[in-house]
Amino acid sequence: MRIGDAKQSYEADEAILTSSTQKIWFALFLFALLLFPFVADAYLLYLGCLVGIAVISTTGLNILTGFTGLISLGQAGFMGVGGYTVAWLSANTGLPFPVTLLLAGLLAAAVGILVGLPSLRVKGLYLAIATLAASVFLHFIFAEWESVTGGMGGLSLEPAHLFGLTFQSDFGMYFIIVPLAVLMVLAAKNVFRTRIGRAFIAIRDRDISAEILGINLLHYKLMSFALSSFYAGVAGGLFAYFFRVVTPESFPLSMSIFYLAAVIVGGMGNLLGGILGAAFMTLIPEALKLLTAALTPFYPNAPIFMSPMLEIIFGALIVGFLIFEPHGLAEIWHRIRRFFSLWPFKN
């Protein structure tokens, strides 16, 4: 039983994993991630990859919206920039996937900086509308710049490759997506142990006070947009490699709302929340289908009756979480952890 955390050095105070219990659980979690593709069937493996992509994009949006307080409805657009960059580079240069993904992230970051410029003057709902407009503009470019994006028909991709290895199957893609997701979440965690991350949080809590403290708002707000878009760009690039086709309809506005919902449901300003939110939003619709499967033997027409109902149940679950736990799934997780950290001696 863990009864306290006595920190005896600054290094210990700044550590991500602060106790041996945490280290053991984290190692077990990594081992489970490694083992997963060997035991999962094609369906679960596919969902695992989808969750991995969603975790990267949600973490990016969490940096911007959850930690810096800048609301964005442009995440799908930034993912689109990443997706098209990878598709174009893959078709025209034959570069290996680490390079294309990096360039996808960087180009998305550059676009993110441009889109973030209005954040210096507007915030809240006004910024949401500004980013929405950017998303519409990007969608227009995807649809109309035919010589580069392939127009409405989009672009098809060759599988991701590196050193002669091709990653065609979900099994192969899992070993790109999941390690990248882990690395990028850890990188984000590290950002918030630096001046940069603390500046983001200061801006979120009160931007005028932050400026008085010497934080350059222009610099840090744009940096937050760039970081967030970089994550989206990489997620979009992985999306392109995973599905091997990108069209303007691959990155609809509803996708931006999906990621915003994942951040809110998971817990804004909490990296664990982003992970849980991404997993929740991706997996719950699939899990709810089990209800239909259970009813079908008794009601052959259950799919017709239940399918719209599941959409309603999914919506109700989201609303329920917002009402009963506004701090999101991360807070529920923390409560569970607190319970077990004192168990069995808690009253």
């Binding site: 069937d41 094609a42 369906y43 969902l47 619709p285 699939e286 959409e311």
Partner: peptide, 20 residues
Amino acid sequence: MEDTGYEVDRSVAAFKKITG
């Protein structure tokens, strides 16, 4: 069959599940 909500990722999931 499986319902997809007319969303590509869910359609792919249904395909993987059914063909699996």
